[in-house]
């Protein structure tokens, strides 16, 4: 789609304008060079970080928060479902893919109106990755470190300028309203952007060369997850069931509906749940179809790399690497995948 060029000063001016009726969530860099995702006051636009790569925190929490009140009853009629308008700056390709995956779950034949309202009321301004982290492996999963579709606007920082790609009608309208802030890119700039993107792809591949963990995974996951060698000696063994990996994961979407009495009425809250927890599967009489930790560990892999592919035609892992950073047992998902792929290769010999 159409690409414009602007600079940092004009971009901040643009943000200020479009924030008139919405709140801002953006990436910011801390003193250690780590990138975080925060709600930012309008006065702090200079802090918005569009360089580097994805934030430590996932944008999932904005659309699917850890706790959402979904019903108050009894009442004559259920409350109206609304969402504050938000502008989100800094989501990376991996985060956007994750949102597209959540879209399929929450807005399929039965609509989740809470998720839907938040999605509808947000403007998504994504960014190209410029410096991937050591844990990034989007390229191995088959995704790219720059967004290709599904954003309103995408920013690609380049030599002190910012290339702004329009990705939707909403994005087009925003640019048109403030056309004085955007110019036609001069000759050669787009080629330069492409070259830079290529270099970043190369960089992510270099980071991951030692793992040999490139997609596709489905067949290996189907056949090798139950391979006792993988199960007994593989990395799965150091899992301590803390649930950190699923909480930080932008595509994990398991939840539980919890009811409580609040004064004279009852409330129902949707809270994040974790498929590693024994209680997640627990049935009446304390029975469970997944009594061993290993059964539950396997579920995470089957869910992301097998079932999701069948049900939603996408791998439910975007290669963001957050779970690698979060794991108490130092489990690296790339290592798990690599072991599965290797086991599958051996079994075919």
């Amino acid at each position: 789609m159409k690409v414009w060029v602007t600079d940092r000063e004009k971009f901040e001016f643009f943000l200020e304008k479009i924030l008139a009726d919405s709140v801002l969530y953006a990436n910011v860099e801390d003193q250690e060079g780590q990138v975080h995702f925060e709600r930012l006051p309008k006065e702090e636009l200079t802090r918005v970080c569009i360089e580097k790569a994805r934030a430590l925190e996932t944008t999932k929490a904005l659309f699917f928060p850890p706790r959402t009140k979904v019903a108050q009853y009894p009442s004559a009629s259920p409350a109206e479902i609304t969402a504050t308008k938000s502008t989100v700056v800094g989501i990376r390709a991996c985060g956007l893919k994750a949102l597209q995956i959540l879209d399929r779950v929450f807005t399929d034949d039965v609509m989740d109106p809470f998720y839907q309202a938040k999605r509808e009321n947000s403007t998504i301004i994504t960014c190209d990755c410029t410096e991937p982290w050591e844990t990034c492996f989007c390229t191995e999963v088959g995704y790219k470190p720059y967004p290709e579709s599904g954003f309103d606007l995408n920013l690609a920082p380049l030599d002190g300028q910012i290339l702004v790609e329009v990705g939707s009608e909403k994005g087009e309208a925003l640019v048109a309203e403030h056309s004085e802030l955007f110019a036609e890119p001069e000759k050669g700039l787009l080629e330069k952007m492409k070259a830079k993107r290529k270099a970043v792809v190369q960089r992510v591949k270099e980071i991951n060369a030692r793992f040999h963990a490139a997609a596709p995974y489905q067949e290996a996951v189907k056949k090798q997850l139950i391979n006792p060698l993988w199960a007994k000696q593989g990395v799965a063994y150091s899992c301590v069931e803390c649930g950190a990996c699923t909480h930080v994961c932008p595509t994990c979407r398991c939840f539980l509906l919890v009811d409580e009495q609040v004064g004279d009425h009852s409330e129902r809250t949707m809270v994040w749940d974790v498929c590693f927890y024994p209680g997640y599967w627990r049935m009446a009489g304390n029975l469970s179809p997944k009594p061993r930790l290993l059964d539950r560990f396997q579920n995470r892999f089957s869910c992301k790399f097998d079932y999701f592919v069948d049900n939603y035609q996408a791998i439910a892992c975007t290669g963001c690497g957050r779970c690698i950073q979060a794991c108490m047992g130092k489990i690296d998902i790339r290592q798990c995948l690599s072991e599965l792929l290797a086991a599958d290769k051996t079994s075919k010999k």
């Binding site: 039965v110 939840f255 509906l257 749940d273 498929c275 997640y280 599967w281 869910c303 097998d306 079932y307």
Partner: peptide, 19 residues
């Protein structure tokens, strides 16, 4: 297959068996 369930609408994940 009367397993643990929560949402009833294919979103919460609890009732998954195979795909």
């Amino acid at each position: 297959m009367n397993r643990n369930m929560s949402c009833g609408v294919g979103k919460c994940g609890h009732c998954i068996v195979g795909r």
